[in-house]
Amino acid sequence: MRTHHVLIGLVTLVIAMAVVSFTAERKDAAASPFTVGFVLPVTGDFGVYGEAARNAGLLAVEELRQQGMSITAIVEDDRLDSKLAVSAAKKLLEVDKVDALVSFSSGETLAVCPLTRAAGVILLTEASSPEVSKCGGYTFRNFPSDVNQGRVLADRARVGGYEKVFVAYLDNDYGAGLKQEFERNFTGEAMVEAFAVQQRDFRTLVAKIKQYAPDLVVLISYPTEGSQLLTQMDQLGLRAPIIGSESTKDDSIIPLLPKGVAERFAAVAVADYTGIEAARFRESYEARFGKKPAVFADYVYDNVMLLGAAIKRCPSAEGRPACLATQIRGTTFVGATGKITFDAQGDVQAKPYDLFRITGNTFVVAK
């Protein structure tokens, strides 16, 4: 009987110790808050997209808080300027001591990724430049590399029977990277010319396009610059068909285009995801902010929700960056943009692309 009493006492003690240990771990997890920093173009010419990106990120943070997570967001504005992005990232990393960083565009991501790599901090982005694959460290992007889009643009030109192409591209990391991938894959004749971010007068560029007399114009641009270039092409009598990069597939560009241009214009972009997660995001965004999300906002939302899923598996602050990287790299996550899985370089696995044309006041898949 004494033996039984001793055994029972030992078992009770072990269970009690386990409960205490488990409770301590739970308290430690609850006491390990998480801070995510955002480096986004909230103002400036790209502000309409940066604002939507910020809103989407904050919406995700709010939803994670509702799930009981202790997470805080700090937003810094880079105005689509690499120097400002570096300054913002340094402040977030060195002063605010953020646990993860979310960035938006290619040039700014490439500027800050050496900082996050040196700090051992997770960087989540939707930047598409092929150079992002070289960031290493704890960098992950949920938008396909322009290696894929460049190939698709070249394939579309080939399938359309176009043999003489003029490529007008933004003079930044995004534009240069995509232009390079198009040239690498296109087998016909091509002339290329860069234009500046925020450029307004395109008469010289349009004259060069007209003189070259291409079968097709490939436009690698943001909506603001793209709409002005296309309008000036129409004003100067240039009637060539146009295929735009994924950044031009934004409904905001449609009312800015002359009717004739809209009929000749198409855009290559990642195929729209139509799952329930996409619908839920749009509904939540519109309910929270009273308007539709701008292009690419859903990728920021997914990056934060993906991060939240990883945080749940890495509750302790000790060793968390490595734990988060392991969880993110090994995840299969389905969000507003569809299925997300990463390769060894932190790039999202390839997604399908479609050709979109303007119908009414929106873009639809071309038949």
Results as ranks from 00 to 15, higher is better:
Gly57Trp: 00
Ala60Asp: 04
Glu62Asp: 08
Leu64Tyr: 02
Gly68Gln: 02
Ser70Leu: 10
Thr72Ile: 11
Ile74Val: 07
Ile74Arg: 05
Glu76Asp: 08
Arg79Gln: 10
Arg79Gly: 03
Ser82Leu: 11
Ser82Val: 10
Ser82Asp: 09
Lys83Glu: 10
Ala85Arg: 04
Val86Ala: 08
Val86Asn: 09
Val86Arg: 13
Ser87Asp: 12
Ala88Leu: 13
Ala89Trp: 01
Lys91Glu: 13
Lys91Phe: 07
Leu92Asn: 03
Leu93Lys: 03
Leu93Ile: 10
Glu94Phe: 12
Val98Lys: 00
Asp99Leu: 06
Leu101Ala: 14
Leu101Cys: 06
Ser103Gly: 12
Ser103Gln: 04
Ser103Met: 06
Ser105Ile: 15
Thr109Val: 06
Leu110Met: 07
Ala111Asp: 02
Cys113Phe: 02
Leu115Lys: 01
Leu115Arg: 01
Thr116Cys: 10
Ala118Cys: 09
Ala118Ser: 15
Gly120Phe: 11
Gly120Ser: 07
Val121Met: 08
Leu123Thr: 14
Leu123Pro: 12
Leu123Ala: 08
Leu124Ala: 04
Thr125Trp: 11
Thr125Gly: 07
Glu126Trp: 10
Ala127Gly: 13
Ser128Ala: 13
Ser128Gly: 12
Val132Asn: 00
Ser133Thr: 14
Ser133His: 08
Gly137Met: 08
Gly137Tyr: 00
Gly137Ala: 08
Phe140Gly: 02
Arg141Asp: 06
Asn142Glu: 01
Pro144Lys: 08
Pro144Val: 12
Pro144Ser: 06
Ser145Leu: 14
Ser145Glu: 05
Asp146Ser: 13
Asp146Arg: 09
Val147Ala: 14
Asn148Phe: 14
Asn148Thr: 12
Gly150Arg: 03
Gly150Gln: 05
Arg151Trp: 03
Val152Ala: 02
Val152His: 02
Leu153Pro: 00
Ala154Cys: 06
Asp155Ser: 14
Ala157Asn: 03
Val159Glu: 15
Lys164Ala: 04
Phe166Met: 01
Ala168Thr: 04
Asp171Asn: 14
Asp171Arg: 15
Asn172Trp: 12
Asn172Val: 15
Gly177Met: 03
Leu178Val: 11
Lys179Asn: 09
Gln180Ala: 14
Glu181His: 07
Glu181Ile: 04
Phe182Leu: 15
Phe182Arg: 03
Arg184Thr: 09
Asn185Phe: 10
Asn185Glu: 14
Asn185Ile: 09
Phe186Thr: 00
Phe186Met: 00
Gly188Cys: 04
Gly188Ala: 07
Gly188His: 00
Glu189Cys: 13
Ala190Ser: 13
Glu193Gly: 08
Glu193Gln: 10
Ala194Lys: 14
Ala194Ser: 15
Phe195Ala: 08
